[in-house]
Amino acid sequence: MSDVTLAAPPTPSALPEQPVSAHDANSLISMRDIWKTYEMGSEQVHALHGVSFDIPKGEYIAIIGPSGSGKSTLMNLIGCLDTPSKGEYWLNAKNVSLMDDDELARIRNQEVGFVFQTFNLLARATALHNVELPLIYGGIGSSQRHEMAKEALRAVDLSDRITHRPNELSGGQRQRVAIARALVNHPSILLADEPTGALDTHTSMEIMDLFERLHGEGNTIIVVTHEHDIAERAHRVISIRDGLIEKDEKIR
């Protein structure tokens, strides 16, 4: 990339895009011409064809797209579970695209809080222990860990459930434990993958209310979904189709 202003990706869609430039130092997330290519036998499949966007700190953003759009790939990249084949990803002023496995693990531990569709709690562990888990990998001592985990559970209104195991909790409660686990390390971003996909409508609304509240408290939230009513709760929606950004709009 000798001349960054000329290195704009092909943009077949109609989005008036910013030119690709060096990462924006003010953004929490800065994606620059991200490509992800998979080898399928002899064929190369491009899951992402040069995606660029910025997310400032404190934003509530939804990434929406049908299955096969590259939405999951993008989420894995944002969550530092994977690295791009090409392009630069800056997270909190760190160039993640060049990191090795252990550095990525550390970034996931410190900067990213995951919330999954199926909660993914450890079945045999109590709510408290589940929430403590990221702190264990963060090398935090047990008494401090307890305090932090209790506080995170308090933040999701589960103070009275800390000794319960997942099978003693309702779906909504489980997801709240998962959110507490995601928040316990005070990460830069809360990254939720279809967070209401396994919940009924009423509970879904409760969880979305919780996200809204957490956003109000200053958290940066990224929700990946294919449901429009979930996406509409966010303040900005990025639509992905065929590995490209189709639309990127502020809705609030």
């Binding site: 969550g79 579970l81 496995d101 252990d102 693990a105 996931r108 450890l122 990998y137 390390n185």
Partner: peptide
């Protein structure tokens, strides 16, 4: 396998 995936997602390194 899934538990290992979760642990890795929340920051477990290979050595962990």
């Amino acid at each position: 396998t899934r538990e290992i995936g979760v642990r890795k997602a929340i920051g477990a390194r290979r050595s962990d």
